[in-house]
């Protein structure tokens, strides 16, 4: 009698495992394209955590109270931690952190475009937590069930921390909205700037998203961009109302029939311009990463040289 292995090609066996919701692990056979897609996606995610430290890091030294300063610093530090385990997850696919960083620095690898927008007021710390982390959670919660084991496991921890971040962002907004008129105005002004860019975080429309279909088939992705964008709007519009803020889209309206909010069209020209490097902060964000890496080179070299000397001395003693 023939076994499944004899009947099915490796590709078919792989898809059968995916369809049965069996996790793929680093040593398992996988199609090259699956591996490449994952390296692209996980490293892009890791880079986003790293670059994402910059817009919020911009306010650590100016946070308005000691409590807020502690929370913000802890949050940005969490992001560095997320970067660390995501790079490690990507390394299980056969790439290295050095290679991934080189791709980031050369502009070959992307990171989330949202971080190419500037953080201009304290309320931006609220909006980044509430909206940006809120959107990130919608993108990321399904990834806890993604087909690649190390990625899924890393995401479980990331999501726990992100949901805490989102709550603190909402709480920053709430404090502002319950505060003085100038604080509420600060909150509204920040929402006006962040609303549309956050909707862009879900990526191009499904019709313009070339990778979606294959990623859904491989169960790397479980919802389409448009589905997630709709969920986000449905979640956030009532929260904005609760805060007493107005979402800057006159077309937002509850649709009884769809049981969802209708909303206006994202400015896709702006979306593509920022993706292609023409956002206000693309240049300085990437340059900040390149500078940190280049200026840190002598430190990394010193650590390696010292470790080598120690190892040599250890070997000499052992001999």
């Amino acid at each position: 009698m023939e076994t499944l292995e004899q009947v099915l090609t490796p590709e078919e066996q792989f898809q059968a495992r995916i369809d049965a919701d069996v996790r793929i692990e680093p040593k398992d056979w996988m199609p090259d394209a699956y591996r490449k897609t994952l390296i692209r996606q996980i490293s892009q995610h890791a880079h986003s955590e790293l670059v994402g430290m910059l817009p919020e890091g911009n306010w650590i030294t100016r946070a308005p109270s000691l409590k807020r300063k502690s929370i913000l610093l802890a949050k940005v530090q969490d992001e560095a931690g997320h970067g660390l385990y995501l790079y490690s997850a990507a390394e299980t696919l056969g790439t290295t952190r050095d290679q991934m960083l080189a791709d980031l620095h050369s502009g070959k690898a992307k990171y989330s475009s949202i971080f190419n927008y500037p953080t201009l007021s304290w309320a931006d710390m609220g909006c980044v937590g509430w909206l940006v982390d809120g959107a990130a959670i919608l993108n990321q919660v399904p990834l806890c069930r993604t087909s690649y084991g190390p990625y899924a496991r890393a995401m479980v921890r990331v999501c726990k921390e992100e949901s805490f971040h989102q709550r603190q962002g909402f709480e920053v907004m709430q404090t502002l909205c319950e505060g003085a008129p100038e604080q509420k105005a600060m909150a509204q002004e920040a929402l006006n700037r962040w609303w549309w860019p956050t909707l862009m975080m879900f990526g191009p429309k499904d019709a313009d998203s070339p990778n979606t279909e294959q990623s859904m088939k491989w169960r790397i992705k479980r919802f389409t961009n448009d589905e997630l964008r709709q969920k986000f709007v449905d979640m956030m519009v009532p929260q904005a109302e609760f805060l007493g803020l107005t979402v800057p889209d006159p077309l937002v309206k509850w649709n009884e029939e769809r049981q969802a909010y209708d909303f206006g069209e994202v400015n896709w020209d702006e979306f593509w311009a920022v993706v292609k490097g023409n956002g206000l902060c693309n240049h300085e964000r990437l340059q900040a990463r390149v500078d940190a890496h280049e200026e840190g080179a002598w430190v990394r070299e010193a650590a390696n040289a010292h470790a080598a000397k120690r190892a040599a001395r250890g070997a000499a003693v052992a001999a």
Binding site: L50, M53, L54, G57, I60, T61, L66, K67, K69, S70, L73, A74, V76, Q77, A80, G81, G83, L84, Y87, A288, D291, A292, E295, G296, A297, V299, R300
Partner: peptide, 28 residues
């Protein structure tokens, strides 16, 4: 905390933020 996001390597970025957080907690 001024180092945050600009450290020479990710692990040391984390270490400096960690120390800053400890000191901030102590200061409070």
């Amino acid at each position: 905390s001024e180092w945050c996001g600009h450290g020479p390597v990710l692990e040391q970025d984390l270490a400096m933020a960690n120390i800053a957080l400890d000191l901030l907690g102590e200061a409070r």
